[in-house]
Structure formats: C-alpha cells, structure tokens
Design a protein around this nucleic acid. Structure first.
Lengths: 208, 208, 208, 208
DNA sequence: GATGAATGAGTGTTCATTCAT
DNA sequence: AATGAATGAACACTCATTCAT
C-alpha cells in the first residue's frame, strides 16, 4: 500500500531527515526544521499532526523510496551469476547506506509509539536478508561459494560496518586517503572493498 | 594523564551514563539525572560546569576505565599463540561493546565543543587497532594467517556488527534464540560466533 | 428592529451555543464549532467576521428568540388574575432559564467590544421587570398582594436562584430527588416550588 | 488538615484569582498572571505544577480562608437571638460573596480533574446550610419563625441573588443609586436589604 | 561545599484568522 | 459563495543554568 505525499510534505521530510540525522530527533526542533525549510512553524503540526508523527511519516517515506529503488535494482541483476549478484548486492546496500545513513541513524533511538515504524524497518531489512540468502544458495549450487553463513549475519556485517564508518568519521578518516570534504566518497570505496573481501572470504568463494 | 574523579562525581556519571544510553543525550534532562542520583539539580552544573561538559567528563571516565580494563586483559593473553590472541581479542571487544554500548551510542551524535572528546575516543579505538595489527602480523609470521586486512577495517567490522546487533534488536532478535529478556546475552553469543568465522576467514586462517 | 439570519448562520449559532454553554467561550475553539456543525473552519470568520462577533450575533439571536416567545406567553396570561399571572410569570422565567441557562452563563464573562450586547440583554431583562411590576401593582390593587418589593429585586431573586441551582449542581443535587440524569428537570421543579413560596411570601400574598 | 502556602505562592494566587474572576480560567494566560504578579512565567509551573493545579490550590486557599473567617464569625453571634443570628448570617454571606465573588464565579466552569475541588466547595456551602438550618429551628422553637423552608433553598436564594447582582451590573446598576465606581458597595446594601425582607418573609417572621 | 529558589530561553502545539482560488 | 491551505501569534510548559545564601 503506497502512501501519497504532497510536494510540500516531501520538502519538509527531506529537510527534517537531514537535520535529524545530524542532530538527533530530540536535538532537532520543529523551529530548526521550519526555518531551514522556509515554512511556518505550525506547518509541521498542520501537515503531520505532531513532530513525532512527522517522524513516523519520514520512516514510511524513506522505506517506500528504498523499496522502490531496490525493486529496480533487483531487476538489473537478475540475469547474472551468483558471484556478480552478491558483489552488486553488497555494493548496492553500501551505497544506499551512504546515501541515507541518517535514516538508519535515528532508527536506534528509542522513540515512543513507534512500534509500527520498527516493523516497517524490519520488513525493509528482511528484503535484503532474503535476497542475500537466495544468492548465497545459488552460489553454493553453482559451486562458487562453499560456506553458507546466516544471511542476517552477513547483512549485519555489511550494514554495521558501513554505518560505523559513516558515523565515526574521526576514527575511520585517519585511514582514508584524500581531502576531508570527500570523506564520504572515499570511505565508501574503502569500506566497500574491505566488505567485498570479507564477504567473499566468509562465503568461501572459489572462482570456477 | 589520569584524571581524578571524586566519588560523588563518579556516582553522577554512572547514573547519567545509563540514562543517556537509554534515552539519548537530549532526551535525558539534568533533572532526570539528579532525581535518579538523589542529588540537587544544580549539582551537575556545579560539578561539571554544564550538562555538555558533564558529557565530556563521562567520555574521559569511560575511556579511562576501559583503558585500564584493556591493559589488564592484554596481560592475560600475552603468552598465547596469535590465533588464540585474535580470538580473545575479538571476544574482549565484543564483550566491552555489549557492556558499554550506550557509550558508543552517543558518540555518533554531533555534540558541540567535543573535539577533544573525539580525540579521546580515537585514541581509544587506536589501542585496539594497534593490537589487532600486532596479532595479525604475528599470525602471518607464524604461518597461521595468510591475509593481512587493514586493522581499521577489521575493527570496523567487529564494532559495527556488534553495535548494529545491539541497536537493531527488532531485526536481529528474529534470528536469536531464547527469551526476549535474554536478548543481549544471546545476541552477543551469536554475533561473536559469526564474527570469529568472518575474521578468521578474512585472515585466511589455516591451522598449522 | 429584527435582524435576519440565514439558515446556515442559525445552524452555526445553534451548535456554537451548545458548545459554549458546556465549555465556555474561550474553551470552545472555532474548530470545535466548525467540526460539529459540519462546516469549514473559515466559515465562522466568513459569516460573522470573527469569533467574537459571532458571539455578538449569538446574543442577538437568543434575545430575539426569547422576546418572541415572551410575547406569545404574555398573550396567554393576559386574561387571568394577578396571582395566577405572577405564578405563571415565575414559572415561565424559571423555565426559560433552565432551557437557555448557558446563554445567561456566558453573559457574565467580560467580553471585549460587547457594550451593545449588554444593552440587548439589559433590554431583555427589563421586559420581565416591567411585567413583574405590572402584575405586582395589579395584585395590590386587587387586594391579594400587600407588599410591593422592587421588581428588579424580585427578578434578581428568581434568575439568581435558578442559575445558581443550574450551575452548582454539585451542591444542589444533594437535595434533589431522583437520578442524576434527571437533575435539571427535578431541580427545576424544586427551585420553582421554593421560589413561588418565597415570591408570594415577599409579596405578602393573602387569597381573597 | 491545613495546607501551608508561602508568601510568594499567596501573592500569585491573589493575582490569579482576580484575573480569572474577570476573564475566566481559559481567558487568563499564565503570562497575564506572571506579568501582573511581577514574576517569571515559569514560576506558576514551578510552584504549582501546572496552570490547572494552580487553580486547585486557589480553591483550597480560598476555602480555607473563608472557613477560618466563618469560624470567627460564628463565635461572635453565638449568644444572640435566632432573628439576630439569621440577620447576621445573611449579612455575612452576602458580604463574603461581594468580597470573593470571583471565587464563586469560576466554580461553575467545567474544569477537568477537579472533582475534589468541587467537594471542597460543596463542603464549604454545607457549612452555611447547617448553620441556616440550626438558626431556623431555633427561631421556630422560640416562636419568631413560623415556616421552615429548606435551608439549601434559602442559601440558594441568598448566594444566587448576590452573585447575579454582582455579575449583571449592567442590569442591576440601573436601580442602584450613587456613582458607578461605588456600584459594588451600593449594590451590596440594596441586595442585602431585599434579601433580608425576602428571607424573613419566607420564614414567616413575627417578632415576639 | 552545597542547595533551593528563581530565571530566561526555548520547546511543541493550538489558535483565530487570512488568502488565493 | 465558499473553501482548503497556510500563517503568525500565543499558548502552557520544560529546559539548563545562575545566584544568594
């Protein structure tokens, strides 16, 4: 079931997403959002009912967007070999995280009345889990993979590493080449390379 | 340089740490802390200067504590073989994260005036990086490891995965056996097992 | 001079009257009214200019209605003896108050720009005063009444008592028989009986 | 059980009482109160918890005060004859109403969570009811009164009339001599005179 | 050294009203 | 003639902090 958002609502959600990513839900005031979005303070309540409900809509919006993107992506790799599919899958997930890491950021915070939000996200993660499982099994069948780690552990590895690199810039940037302003791009490359090695090692990859 | 904290300060920091872990920095008021700690509201400002400076002291306190713990731990494994050392190292790091995950939790939030905090934490992570690097090299030298992944990537893998499992209970608990109230214990076991496989795979471990 | 109200306006006023009676002028929002009346929020401003002006129109509307009703009533008693007229008059006034007490309720609140409203009401009360005076004098002339209290004091007695019984349900209901949900009906009976005794005593009533 | 209020609290309550009397509970903002009382806005929440709880304290304060005053008054008339006692009682009640009419004003408004407030007031009114009943019976016994109207009806008569005169200045002032600024004093005299006649008539008063 | 009282800035939300259509 | 979107002002309240003692 696809929820419709008006252009204005999307505009607000976009602004809110970035601010909340940077300063957290509690750290971001509706006045911050409204100022940055060039709208009236009252609009957040007006459009979404409350700050917290806005958060709820934000989740739905982001999950929906990502799901659409993933469906498209899945189509592009459906013809390839398992090893290619796995590589592209890792690439895709890492890329999404670097694009929308803030979204995953505030998931962790304990929000009240957000049970169904968490279900949205759960559902969302499971999309990846299933895909990873499929590809792993196909790889084992075709003889390129020799181990079948639990898909949820693989996903945890990928998402956890990416998010950690994103959020702990102070630490990880020490090992990332290039200028500070390119940190995210360079970090993505580095963590992706590392993850591919790790994932393929764990799968016991042997080219045919 | 070791900072001294009075008993009262430590008491406040202990209470604050737990509350902040649960509700976030902004979500935790100084009144919450002072009520729970049975002290006067004014004490936080009085002892630490401000709520934010208290945060700063909290970092120092936790880093200091962990450093002491780590020094002790390092002593216990210094005689073993590299593969044992690596295993224990992973175990130790994961265990620390499960114990003090909240601490790492709020690292990510963009606090103002916290540059030196971040340095503390950086320094702290590097302690692990160096140890991982040492053990990896020793393992390569002794012929049990055949690849030398970047230590910062290994650490990222370990910390990232553990924190993700901790924070995304909704997702990960689906795959964790046992009762909900034992989630953390069971999740620690599961993620540790997974990480050991992954780390040793990545290191190209081959027993002599 | 009779003001004309459109059907829609009357509909809004009816809804508003009830809500304001229950929750007070300030306690009733234009959204409450518009929701209950199934009209657009903007309609109140659109039809009446403002919430406060709507109030003004509400007064006029209620005064006008009551005046019409009173004229009708006066007709029905014009042939009777003074004692019967007085009794019916008290009954009529008490009945009106129990029907439209809310209307008198919000009279007391200090509204801004309401001078002419008050005049409406004043005029309205004076209708009764004059009638009471007439009947009193006729009763004295016919020898059934022996005192002539000031008509405004008699009216004050009647209106004050009725309103107090209506508004201080908590107190008065202690002495009123029957179920809570019939309070108003029972209270009306009781206060009416009491007032008749009091009024006739004060008039020094002696049947011919 | 006597609740203690600090001087500052009493100061706030005094200011609040007057404002609320004039503009109603909803019509009076905490800013109005704090401005007039020359205190910080936050003080109302600080001292009383919330605006509504302040209201609760206001009731208690006023009831307590009046109860003290009444105990004192009762002492002064305990030696007199019933007719004198009744006269003084009416005088006292009317006087209290003119002094603290605003207090009775907002009783009527439907406040949430104020059940126990209403009980306070109920209890308070009953103090008068019982006294009226006592004096009536004594008067009947001593042969000066010949009717025994229900005490609650007598009280309703007195309070209702006084409050109506106070609140409907526009109407009642037409019949009150003297300047506008002396309205309350003159109205008190007039309504008292009227009430004494009415009450004694109703009691069937005959001097021995 | 420690505290209770007090403060001013800021919070999210609701309000009556306006405006473009 | 009527409305849905939008607004700015006001709302009650909470915050971290200060200050007099």
């Amino acid at each position: 079931m696809k929820k419709k958002f008006t252009e204005k609502q999307i505009h607000i959600l976009d602004v809110a997403e970035k601010l909340i990513a940077k300063k957290g839900f509690e750290g971001t005031s509706v006045r911050d959002i409204s100022t940055k979005a060039n709208i009236n303070v009252a609009m957040i309540s007006y459009y979404f009912g409350s700050k917290e409900k806005m958060m709820s809509h934000l989740y739905q919006y982001r999950v929906q967007k990502t799901r659409e993107s993933f469906a498209e992506f899945a189509e592009t790799i459906k013809e390839g070999k398992p090893e290619m599919q796995m590589k592209e899958l890792v690439k895709y997930v890492v890329n999404q995280l670097f694009k929308f890491n803030y979204f995953h950021g505030f998931v962790t915070q304990e929000l009240r009345h957000t049970e169904h939000l968490k279900e949205d996200l759960l559902d969302f993660y499971n999309t990846f889990t299933h895909k990873i499982d499929d590809v792993t099994k196909k790889g084992i069948a075709s003889g390129v993979f020799h181990h079948a780690p639990k898909p949820e552990d693989l996903l945890t590895l990928i998402i956890g590493s990416a998010l950690f690199a994103i959020r702990n810039k102070n630490f990880y940037s020490l090992y990332v080449p290039g200028k500070e302003e390119n940190y995210l791009q360079e970090a993505e490359k580095k963590i992706l390379a590392s993850l591919l090695v790790t994932v393929f090692s764990t799968l016991g990859y042997q080219p045919n």
